[in-house]
């Protein structure tokens, strides 16, 4: 579908997805506080963060799933090749959803209607967005199930969501997302509920699909192993802000934010056996009671006087950002 070109602001040279200065509020609480990241076709950006960091809310806001009265996007933009999704009319946005940008949920079951067969639900996408006939749409649905490696797809298309196992459900969820060949896929903790061996299958599948179609993938996760496995770039979120961004290998090798450094130190590794793990003291701040300055300051070992001011995102290398006043001390060993 080539609808995107006809929309205001379209710029073929702009990044595929660029989020900037996004703010989301739930009631009086700001849960996403000026988040920005970019991802281009064929790239995987991992958004890494613990629960409550705002990583999922950001994704839902991009997809237009944050709506009053529950919450509201109060500032910022989410541009697809320059077209701001957040200012588009709901009707336009609905048409882009699925065809240009799609989402895979943590719990695929919740994204599926329990009383309709899986094949029917995928076929519905083709009928609604491409006006295909019932028969043609059903054929395409089977193709999609085949594409996500569901064995005997033609037979399974007639099954209902509850008849699929956890891993197969997640494949169906991915199938729903990629059916219309979107340019951007946002996957929100797609493997968190799965076992290790099944997680490996799903991660491999996502990677293959992305390479075949040149899709941009935004992978939201708390699992640092998954990030290391699949991401080109990583954005680390803490308390509603992106605290560090860069190429995955760079960030893991030389973290430039104390939080990233502490997270990496908290993972049990074979060489740390018999020793205590590094811990981050305390707990994440309460988003309802924001304190001025750097959000990580109360738990940070590097905190100094400057940290009373909110640190700006500083570019410390090509495509490498950190929001820390003391980043130079963090990076020097």
């Amino acid at each position: 579908m080539t609808r995107l070109e006809s929309l205001p602001g379209y710029d073929a040279a702009a990044p595929l997805l660029a989020v900037s200065e996004l703010r989301v509020r739930f009631g009086a609480t700001t849960v996403v506080d000026g988040v920005g990241y970019e991802v281009d076709g064929g790239q995987t950006l991992a958004v890494l963060g613990e629960s409550g960091s705002g990583k999922s809310v950001t994704a839902r806001a991009i997809m237009g799933l944050v709506r009053p009265p529950r919450g509201a996007v109060t500032a910022g933009s989410a541009r697809l090749r320059g077209v701001d999704l957040l200012t588009l009319a709901e009707e336009e946005r609905r048409r882009l959803r699925g065809t240009t940008i799609a989402m895979v949920f943590q719990d695929a079951l919740s994204a599926l209607n329990p009383v309709l067969s899986v094949g029917y639900q995928i076929a519905e996408l083709f009928r609604a967005h491409q006006g295909l006939s019932r028969k043609e749409a059903a054929r395409r649905a089977v193709e999609v199930l085949d594409l996500v490696r569901i064995p005997s797809a033609a037979r399974r298309a007639r099954d209902y969501p509850h008849q699929f196992s956890g891993g197969m459900r997640q494949r169906v969820g991915i199938g729903l997302a990629i059916a219309l060949n979107p340019q951007v896929i946002i996957a929100d903790e797609p493997t968190t509920a799965l076992d290790v061996t099944v997680q490996a299958q799903i991660i491999r599948l996502l990677g293959e699909l992305q390479r075949e179609h040149g899709t941009a993938l935004v992978l939201i996760t708390h699992d640092m192993g998954v990030v290391a496995d699949i991401a080109d770039r990583v954005a680390v979120m803490y308390a509603g802000r992106v605290v560090e961004q860069g190429a995955a290998a760079e960030v893991y090798a030389r973290p430039a934010h104390p939080y990233t450094e502490a997270l990496l130190g908290a993972i049990p590794r074979p060489e740390l056996r018999g020793r205590r793990l590094a811990v981050i003291p305390g707990a994440p701040p309460d988003p309802g009671r924001p304190e001025p300055g750097c959000r990580f300051r109360p738990r940070c070992g590097y905190a100094g006087d400057a940290c009373g001011q909110q640190p700006p995102a500083r570019e410390i290398g090509p495509g490498r950002l950190t929001a820390c006043h003391e980043w130079e001390r963090v990076t020097t060993p």
């Binding site: 061996t197 640092m224 998954v226 990030v227 995955a248």
Partner: peptide
């Protein structure tokens, strides 16, 4: 062996270096 190889290693540098056994199906 499959379980160990499927567990993601938190080190991007190790990507591609380890032999991965991806099992089919689920238990």
């Amino acid at each position: 062996r499959a379980l160990l190889s499927a567990a993601p290693v938190p080190d991007p540098a190790a990507r591609g270096t380890r032999q991965e056994i991806v099992l089919d199906g689920e238990p």
